[in-house]
Design a protein around this nucleic acid. Sequence first.
DNA 1: TGACAGGGGGTGT
DNA 2: ACACCCCCTGTC
Length: 296
Amino acid sequence: MAEELSWTAWSVLDGFPKLAARSLAELLDGGQAFRWNPAADGVWRGIWSNHVVELKTGSDGRLRWRTPEIRGAGVTAVQLRSYLDVDPAFEQRMEVMPWRSDPHLARCIESFPGLRILRQPFDETLLCFLCSATKQIVQIKQIVELLAKRLGRELAPGFFRLPNWTELASVSEAELRACLLGFRARYIHETAQFLAGQPGWLAETQALPYAEAKARLCLLPGVGEKVADCVLLFGAGRMEAFPVDVWIIKTMARRYGLESWKPVQIAHFGRVHFGANAGLAQQFLFAWERETAKKK
DNA sequence: TGACAGGGGGTGT
DNA sequence: ACACCCCCTGTC
């Protein structure tokens, strides 16, 4: 089992800002990614692509990491920094968000220091958000774990990567349903068939300007505006993508007075009000609203 | 402890 | 508007 794995020593990830445990939890388990789980007290274990890694914050607030000493399952500091978007451009984006003129946004940012948008693989992000319709995070994680265990490749004992779209194309809808997908199984099955007949389609889509990329993603069965924006934000670093889900509808109504606005109107407001980094702002608002709901 | 409603981070018709 | 599919959660 996993206990037998040999891990590297813990080392500090240089360049990552100090962050509280709650920021780390929100970053890894707040709805951007679905493959992070507590491994021990304060330790998060996660998988993306063929990388396995553990993260924790020390008492000094600095981020520490370790990875299995197995060829093909580990991660380098460079890869980890990319995933966590450790980049001067990130600091710049934080700087130009309108928190100076938006006290609520300022409050949300102060509450989750270190929170950011992960840079996840495009294909895996699409798969995860095709699983997400009317599901809560716990359920999405359960589905995604089953997909990895049953259909993915084993990277190390007990650690499985997600199946890629080529592999998914040869999986029957019934097998997908067995992974608790329900009506989402058809979406994934049909998307896999479509992508199998269009080599390069995903990579081309990822390279397009935001509006065109979104329009193309919306052609896929099971992908509407919300899912497309999530895929572009969390899987392609498009900070202008502003996913409007029930939480954002709630928060924009309560904190910005947009009572009974429709999703498309809220999306427009978000792009205008928050600007080029609307998606990044959205993540802070989202974290705040979720925490507020939890406290009740 | 165990059964039972109710509703869910959306899309497609 | 409503179905889709079925698991999680709260409650008795």
